[in-house]
Simulated assay, not measured.
Amino acid sequence: MVTDMTNRRAFLSGMLAATVLPRPTWADAGAPTCLAAAKVSTGDYILCGMREGGELVFSLPLPGRGHAAAAHPTRPHAVAFARRPGRFALVIDCLLGREMAGLDAPDGRHFYGHGVFSDDGRQLFTTENDYDNGRGVIGVWDATNNYRRLGEFWSGGTGPHDLRLMPDGETLVVANGGIETHPDSGRAKLNLPTMQSNISYLSFVGEMLEQVTLPAELQLNSIRHLAVAPSGKAALAMQWQGDLARPVPLAGWHERGREIHLLTAAPNSQRQMAGYAGSIAISGDSKQIATTSPRGGMIQLFSVGQDAPTILQAPDVCGVSHQAGGFHYTTGTGEVGQFSENGLKPQQTHDLAWDNHLVRL
C-alpha cells in the first residue's frame, strides 16, 4: 500500500509539473528575434537578444569579445562563441541569465566563432581549427548531456569559419575559408600562395556529400560566411587576400548540383568594400541577397532581375539578417535598423559597439 501510494504521488507530481511548469521557450525569454554580441562603453563584452524594432530584450556578460552565437531551436539557450582564434564557447540560459555549461576545445583545437544546432536541438556542431595538422574539423557536442563532446570529423578543407543547417535537417553546409593559421602566429595567414577555399556539404557523421570551389583566378578569395534560404539556396560572403585595387566579387550563391554563381557590382563599389564582406543574408524567397562591409561602410543588396545591386552607405556596418520584417543591420556605432532598395531605416541607437553578426532565431 505504501509503495502504491508513493508511486501514485510520484505520478501525480510528474503530471502536475508537466502541466504547471512547461518547458521554457524563447517567448518566455522576451521573444527576441535575433542575437548579437557587442562591446559596452566600459570595454566589457555582452551577448544581447533583440526584437525586430531594435529593442533590447536581454544582455548577458561574456568573458571576452564575442563573434556569433547559435540559438537552440526551441529552448531559450544560446551558445556564445569567442572571436577567432577563440577558446571559449558558453552555453547561456537567456531566461535565467546564467551560464549553463562551457565548451572546452580539446588540445590542439580552437573555435572559429560559429556553430549550429540540429533541428531537434540534441546536437551542436562547431567549426574548429586542428592547427597542428593544418586542417579544419567540425566538433560534435551532446546538448542533452551538459554539452559533452561526442567527437569530430573533417570539415572538408582548411579554416572552416561558418556553417549552417540545410532545410532537409540532415545536411551541414560549411564555408572552408582555406586559410591556415596557428595560435603561435596570432592571426597571421600561413598559406596564402596555396590556399583554397570551398563550400562542403556534409552529413552529421562527416560524409562528404558535395563540394564546390571558386574559379582558379579567385583562388585568393576566402569563403567565410553563409546564409541559407528555405529553398536550399546558400548565399556566401568572401574576403579577398590579394591586391585590394583589383575589383573582385565578394558575394555569391550556390545550389547543390551547380557551380558557384558570383554576384558583382560596379568596379568602384567593389573596391570600396576593401576586399572584405563581413556578413551576409538571404531573403526567405531567395530573391534578394545582402552583404555588408564594415571596412567600406557599405551594404550591397542584390535582387533577382536587377543588373546591379542597390548600394547603401552605413559607417561600420556588419551585422545583417533577414527576418519577418525584411533585412536588418547593426553597426559598430550602435545603430540598429532595416533596409531595402528604398534605403536605410534606422530604428534605435544603443551605447554599444555591435560585433560582426546578427543571428536570426
Rank of each mutant, 00 (worst) to 15 (best):
R75V: 04
R75G: 00
R75S: 11
R75P: 01
P76H: 08
P76N: 10
P76M: 10
P76A: 07
H77F: 15
H77A: 05
H77M: 13
H77K: 10
A78N: 00
A78T: 05
A78D: 06
A78I: 09
A78G: 00
A80T: 12
A80H: 08
A80P: 10
A80I: 12
A80K: 07
F81A: 02
F81G: 06
A82V: 04
A82E: 14
A82I: 06
A82Y: 04
R83T: 08
R83Y: 11
R83P: 01
R84I: 02
R84N: 01
R84C: 03
R84Q: 04
P85I: 13
P85Y: 07
G86Y: 00
G86A: 06
G86T: 08
R87T: 14
R87A: 14
R87M: 14
F88K: 00
F88V: 03
F88A: 05
A89G: 11
A89W: 02
A89Y: 01
A89C: 11
A89K: 10
L90I: 04
L90G: 01
L90F: 09
V91N: 05
V91F: 04
I92F: 03
I92T: 09
I92M: 13
D93C: 11
C94L: 11
C94E: 08
C94A: 14
C94Y: 06
L95C: 07
L96H: 15
L96E: 15
L96A: 15
L96K: 15
G97H: 08
G97M: 11
G97S: 13
G97R: 10
R98V: 15
R98G: 00
E99N: 09
E99Y: 05
E99Q: 12
M100D: 09
A101F: 05
A101N: 10
G102D: 07
G102F: 07
L103R: 02
D104S: 14
P106Y: 11
P106T: 09
D107Q: 12
D107I: 03
G108I: 00
G108H: 03
G108K: 05
G108F: 04
R109D: 00
R109M: 13
R109F: 12
R109S: 03
H110V: 08
H110P: 05
H110G: 00
H110R: 01
H110Y: 15
F111N: 03
F111T: 08
F111L: 08
Y112W: 12
Y112S: 05
Y112C: 02
Y112G: 06
Y112T: 06
